[in-house]
Structure formats: C-alpha cells, structure tokens
Design a protein around this nucleic acid. Structure first.
Length: 554
DNA sequence: AATCGGCCCAACCGCGCTCCC
DNA sequence: CGGGAGCGCGGTTGGGCCGAT
C-alpha cells in the first residue's frame, strides 16, 4: 500500500515519492519538508514509527506535530503524525466494530449533522472521525445497493422531535438541507437554481419544468413537517425563488410568504388546505405525505437527473390514481406498509435515501424483523430483497416493454419486485406507489438525460400551453389530444405539480394553499440565474389556474 | 484451487480556518 | 493588514482481505 510494504522499506523512499515535491506537505500552510531535508515517508506506519510517535507524544504532548520530525527523526510529516496519533495511537481508542448503540448514535447524529465526522466523533468517545466516516460510507453503499433508507424512521422522528422542542444543538432542517442535501453528493442538489438550470440547459423543453420547482418547494415545506425543513426553506429563500420560476404568481407569492411560518408548526392545516386531509390516518402520528412524495420525488428524481418512472406513469394508470376507494388504496390499508412519516420526509428530500424500491421492499415480504437501520439489519433486508429479486427477472429494460414513449429507462432490478403486482393492480399500485414513482433511482439508473427524459416527457406541456415550444420539442409531444376527444390523461397531469393538483379537491383550495406556501417576501436574487428561457417559458405556469384546471380527478 | 469482485479501512490529499509574527 | 505556520476536516484512494463463483 502506498509503495511501502514493509518496515524494511522505511529506509527506501520510492522514486515516485522522491519525485513528488513534497511527499506529504503536512499542510497547505507550510510544508515540513522544506529546505532539502530527507523526503518524508508515506504509506503505512510501522511499529517502530508508532513507538517513536507515542514516545514523543508522551514527552511533549499532542500538538506541534511538525516538531515530531525535527525532534525524533521520524520521516513523517506533522500531518501524518497527527492522523496516526488521532486515529490509532492515542489512548482510549475503541477498536473493532461499532456497537449497535454506536451505530444508532451515528445514524442519529448524521441525520442532524450531515457529514460532520469530527463533530460526530466528539459524541462517540474512543471513535475517530475516520472510523465514522468509513462506517457511514459503507452504510450508504449498502443502503443504495439494497434500496433501503439510510435513516430509519425512528432516527428522523427523534430529530424532528428535538427540532420541534428546540432541544437539539443543531437543526435537522439546516443540516439536512445544507449538509445532507448538498454535502455528500448523495443528497439534494441545489435544484432550484443550479441543477435545475443545468438540466434546463441540457434539455430544450426544460423551461416547462420550472414548475417542478414549486412541487419541490411545496414538498420541502411538507418535509419540514417531519424534519424541520421549513426553517431551511425560509432561510434560503427557496420559497421566494418560486416566484422566479412562477412569475405569474408574483402577487400571490408576494402576498403571503409570511404566513408560511404558521405551517411549519401546523402542517395539518396546510394539508387540509391543500386537500390532503384524506391522507391523514386516524392516528395523527401516522400522517403521511406520500402524495407529496409523488410530486416531490418525481421532481426530485428529475432534479437529480435520474429517473426511471416510465412504468408507473403510464397513462391508463393515472386515471386510477385519485381513487382512494380501492381496497388496496385505502389509506389505512396502505398505511400499514408505509414507513414512518419522518422517513418519508427523508424520502422527499432525496431519492437516494429511499428509492421507491425501498418502499416496495418494505411493502413486500421483505420486511426486516427490525427497522433500526443498523448495518446488520440492512444486510438482512438486502438479502431479503435479493431473494425477492431471484423470483423475477433480474434486470428489465423498460425499453423492451410496451414501447411507451417514456420507456427509455432501464428499470432498476429492484423495481421488478413490484412488476407483477404493478401489472395486476395498476390502480392500486399507482395509489400506493405512484407517490414514489418518479423516484426510482438506483445504481442502475442512468445518470442524466436518458432517464430524465422520462420525467421531462411527462412534464412537458402541449404547444397550446407553451407556444414558445419549437417544432423540435414536438417530437416528444404527448400523444394525448384533448381536442380529439382523447380520454387519456394528459401527460401534463403526470407532472409532479399536476399530480399535486390532481389531489386537490378544489382548485381554489389549491390556489390558496400555493398562496399560503409562497409568501410575499419576494426575492429576486435568483431571477438572473434562472435565465430568460425559463422566465419566458414559464408563462404557461405563471397562471396557476391552469394547474387547477388540471384537477381532472377531483 | 483459482479467479473475481466487493468490502474494509488506513492513509493521503486538498482546502480552509485560526493563530502568530 | 498580510503572509506563513499549524492544524483540522472532509473527500478520496488503493491495497489487503474475504466470500462467492
């Protein structure tokens, strides 16, 4: 490893190390390897080196690491010495696997802090940031592979409670939004401006998707119910940015942003205002936000440039979507499968955190005996998933299926878990799973355009609605023709926000809810970044009455 | 038994912050 | 005030280990 294989190699510095200007500069601020001294050794530490370092620290204490080389003749930079000491040599270090309690704590801490390994390590005596980091990276890999949630429900619930009580020393929303969402690369990109614009540039029909932002905005707001995202939403002006993508809503937005706050503490009211009250289970503690997840995760997947939603968004099924009278779709019946609210909040934030396949896995026979989210249990669920997959074709490309316009995506293997059920119970599937239909992100999901076009196709609007669309865009126009009496659902309705409106009992309610969500503190900072294309093409979305008119299923 | 692929984890790397001169 | 030194942090790398085939 690193060119140093044994202790005997200590005296032999490899040529590549010799060639490097500084074997290990120790810090950006100044290299300990200055003035033509012997090149510093890299690679694994030997027992002799450890002994030297330990002896030095015993005599001089920690700190002043660059002095180690000077005083001991150890050909290691101070940085390397510090790392070695901190991670391996200092006393009271715990070695070995993390205990279950430690794992829970790590998960909980990460849900609050994000990738602040050092801070997390401070809560875990004897554990190093490096250990925690490695553990977490491993965990993420496993979760991704298994399509399982990274955060067990209990963890985020606890975080939520702490936030609501103001007892946490950090804010779940803040950290999720800043650290989780942006920091690790697993999480939500800054979709509203950065990713969104990037995608917009890549796709000619992206402007229409500006409206997707509002779904995210709304969804983020609802996510705040469980993970205190509302603070972040307010702080970052995400809601304010909605005005940039929905200029026509300026008045509405300008009017009531301040009223958003009340909903951060009273999302029930908001849910009802949005016509989602039927989603509430009798047990208020089990309130779900799945429909928002549908809107959200769909848009989210798009925002991540990853999507494989072709199946669940196929037309005929959409007609069944609002039906909650289906036995399968009875809230109480499918709530029993539903992961805890907080977990769903996480889902809303990031398709990585819980893909729909993860949801499916939970709903399927592959239910873990526990749901603590510990690695061991993840393995269990992963194995269960695999066993489930073994009963079905392992990989299926939707391009080989019915040939729907959207079937350009390679469906994740996990998705096959629900394939048969999907085919047999399309309506109930949609009712149950559609909320996550746009969120089928897995490792097998193509990173950008191929998958995203599914969503984009679903999201684009007709020329009538968007006169600015060129002929080129028409190549991907939906087949639905309202004028021709086509009773197929308009692809517009597959837009996350259309789904959103589809659930709306009353368009006015929807409007009011939008108004309440998007307040009046208009912030134009983002406007220039959004670009002319979006601004001009968002006209079709600027009048939300259009969205309300899409409430065909009310 | 050999090969392969995934996992683990120690270490490296670059960046940024703080302190001091 | 500016620059250097020291240090910490988070991300990444890559070799060894181990189980599966």
């Amino acid at each position: 490893m690193y060119g140093v294989k044994s202790e005997s190699d200590c005296e032999m510095i490899h040529q590549d190390q010799m060639d490097s200007p500084v074997a290990d500069d120790g810090s950006s601020g100044g290299s300990p390897h200055r003035g033509g001294g012997p090149p510093l050794k890299k690679g694994p530490w030997t027992a002799a080196e450890d002994a030297i370092l330990v002896d030095y620290v015993k005599k001089h204490g920690e700190g002043n690491w660059n002095a180690v080389q000077k005083n001991t003749g150890l050909f290691r930079c101070g940085k390397s010495c510090r790392l070695r000491w901190a991670n391996h040599l200092r006393p009271n270090l715990k070695k070995g696997a993390f205990t279950a309690e430690e794992e829970r704590l790590i998960i909980q801490l990460h849900s609050k802090m994000g990738n602040k390994w050092a801070r997390m390590a401070a809560h875990l005596p004897g554990r190093t940031d490096n250990e925690i980091k490695n553990y977490w990276n491993t965990r993420i890999k496993r979760c991704q592979r298994a399509g399982l949630p990274i955060y067990p429900a209990s963890v985020c619930n606890q975080s939520s409670n702490e936030d609501q009580q103001g007892s946490s020393d950090f804010n779940c929303g803040e950290n999720l939004s800043n650290d989780l969402l942006n920091g690790s690369g697993l999480y939500l990109p800054d979709f509203t401006c950065d990713n969104f614009i990037a995608n917009s540039e890549a796709l000619s029909y992206a402007p229409q998707l500006s409206a997707v932002s509002i779904s995210n905005l709304l969804g983020q707001s609802f996510a705040s119910k469980n993970c205190s995202f509302m603070d972040q939403v307010n702080q970052t002006g995400m809601l304010k940015q909605a005005d940039s993508v929905l200029p026509g809503l300026s008045d509405t937005i300008n009017g009531v942003l301040s009223s958003v706050d009340q909903f951060s503490n009273d999302s029930e009211k908001l849910m009802q205002a949005l016509g989602f009250d039927y989603l509430h289970e009798a047990n208020s503690s089990s309130k779900i936000i799945a429909p928002f997840g549908g809107a959200l995760t769909g848009s989210h997947a798009f925002l991540n440039g990853n999507l494989s939603a072709s199946r669940p968004t196929n037309g005929p099924l959409k007609m069944e979507l609002p039906s909650l009278q289906d036995t399968e779709s009875d809230p109480s019946s499918w709530l029993k499968y539903t992961v805890a609210p907080a977990m769903q909040a996480i889902e809303l934030v990031d398709p990585y955190l819980q893909s729909p396949t993860a949801t499916l896995s939970v709903k399927s026979q592959c239910v873990s005996p526990r749901n603590s989210g510990l690695l061991e249990e993840l393995l269990h669920e992963s194995q269960a998933l695999r066993s489930g997959k073994n009963q079905q074709p392992s990989v299926r490309s939707s391009s080989s299926s019915a040939g729907t316009p959207c079937d350009t995506t390679v469906v994740s293997p996990e998705f096959d878990l629900c394939q048969e059920y999907w085919e047999e119970h399309p309506s109930s599937f949609l009712n149950e799973y559609a909320p996550f239909s746009g969120n089928s992100f897995t490792e097998s999901t193509p990173p950008v355009s191929a998958a995203s076009t599914d969503m984009f196709q679903l999201s684009k609007i007709s020329p009538a609605q968007s006169p600015s669309l060129g002929s080129g865009e028409q190549a991907i126009e939906p087949k639905y023709d309202p004028g021709a009496g086509d009773t197929s659902p308009h692809p517009e309705n597959f837009r996350p926000d259309a789904l959103f409106s589809g659930y709306t009992v009353d368009p006015s309610i929807f409007n009011n809810a939008i108004a309440m969500l998007l307040g009046n503190d208009m912030n134009t900072e983002c406007k220039p970044d959004l670009g002319d294309g979006i601004a001009s093409n968002s006209s079709s979305w600027s009048n939300m009455s259009h969205a309300c008119e899409m409430s065909e299923f009310k």
